[in-house]
Design a protein around this nucleic acid. Structure first.
Length: 242
DNA sequence: GCGACAG
DNA sequence: ATCTTGTCGC
C-alpha cells in the first residue's frame, strides 16, 4: 500500500516517546470519511524471535464480502524499544508499517491487535499506525490497558462501554456467545460504532476477527520457519470454497 | 510507598 | 510477547 516514510524517529527515550504521543494524539480523527468502503480489511500482528532481538510483523488482507484472504506480507526488524505499557507502538509499529507498505492492494481499514484511543494518552498503537498510514484503523485488544466496564451479556454482539471516568474510550464487545469479550476502540478515521460493527463482521467464527487471527498465524508460522504452511492453509481454504 | 500494566 | 503438556470442562 502507499505509505509515506515515518515522519518521526522511532528510537526515542521513554520521555520523548510520551511527549510525541501527546502531540500526535491531537491529530487522530474519529470520523469515518463519507462513502468510505470497508470491504478489504488488513489484520496486523507481531511476534518476537526466541532471543527477543527481532520483531516479526505480518499483515493479512481479508475480503469481508467474499470471506477470503486476498494477500499477505511480512517484515522483520531489530527490536529497538523495550516493552513499556502505553508505549507498545514504539516496539512493534516500525515492523508492522514495513509489512503494510509491501501490500500491493490498498486496504480500506486496518485492524490492530492492540488498543487505539483506549489508552492513557488516547494514542494506542492503532492510532499511531492509522495516523502514519493515513487509513481507517481499529484497535481490537484481548485485554484491558485502561478504563472500567461492566461485563457484557453472553450473547454474540452484546457490548458495554469502556469508561475512563465519564469518558467513553472504547467498547467491550462479545464477538461470540460465551467467549471472553474483546476491547474495541477507535484507531483513526472511524467512529466507535463503525469500529464495533467492523470487528463483529470480521469475527465470523472465533473470538478474534479473522484478519487478526490470520496475521497471528502467519507471524507464528514465520517464526517457526514454516511460512509455507500458512500459504498452503490459505490456498486450501480457497479451493474448498469452490 | 503500593498496585496496575495492550503485546 | 514468551516460557510450556496435559488437562478440566462444555
Amino acid at each position: 500500500m502507499r505509505l509515506p516514510p515515518s515522519p518521526h524517529p522511532w528510537t526515542l527515550g521513554v520521555r520523548d516517546a510520551i511527549a510525541l504521543q501527546r502531540r500526535l494524539a491531537g491529530e487522530v480523527r474519529s470520523r469515518l470519511p463519507p462513502g468510505a468502503p470497508l470491504r478489504y480489511v488488513a489484520g496486523v500482528d507481531a511476534a518476537f524471535s526466541g532471543d527477543g532481538r527481532t520483531v516479526i510483523a505480518a499483515c493479512v488482507l481479508w475480503d469481508l464480502l467474499e470471506g477470503s484472504v486476498v494477500e499477505w506480507r511480512s517484515a522483520v526488524r531489530r527490536v529497538r524499544f523495550p516493552y513499556v505499557p502505553g508505549l507498545l507502538s514504539f516496539r512493534e509499529a516500525p515492523a508492522v508499517l514495513a509489512a503494510l507498505r509491501k501490500l500491493r492492494a490498498e486496504p480500506d481499514a486496518i485492524l490492530c491487535d492492540a488498543h487505539g484511543r483506549a489508552h492513557p494518552r488516547r494514542f494506542g498503537m492503532a492510532c499511531h499506525v492509522g495516523l502514519l498510514a493515513g487509513r481507517p484503523t481499529v484497535g481490537c485488544a484481548k485485554s484491558r490497558l485502561v478504563g472500567q466496564h461492566e461485563d457484557p451479556p453472553v450473547a454474540r454482539g452484546s457490548w458495554r462501554p469502556l469508561l475512563d471516568g465519564r469518558r467513553v474510550i472504547g467498547s467491550v464487545l462479545r464477538t461470540q456467545e460465551g467467549v471472553r469479550p474483546v476491547y474495541v476502540s477507535v484507531g483513526h478515521l472511524i467512529d466507535l460504532a463503525a469500529a464495533r460493527r467492523l470487528v463483529l463482521a470480521c469475527a465470523v467464527r472465533y473470538r478474534l476477527p479473522e484478519p487478526s487471527r490470520l496475521a497471528d498465524q502467519l507471524v507464528r508460522a514465520i517464526k517457526a520457519g514454516r511460512a509455507a504452511d500458512f500459504a498452503a492453509m490459505v490456498t486450501v481454504r480457497v479451493s474448498k470454497r469452490h
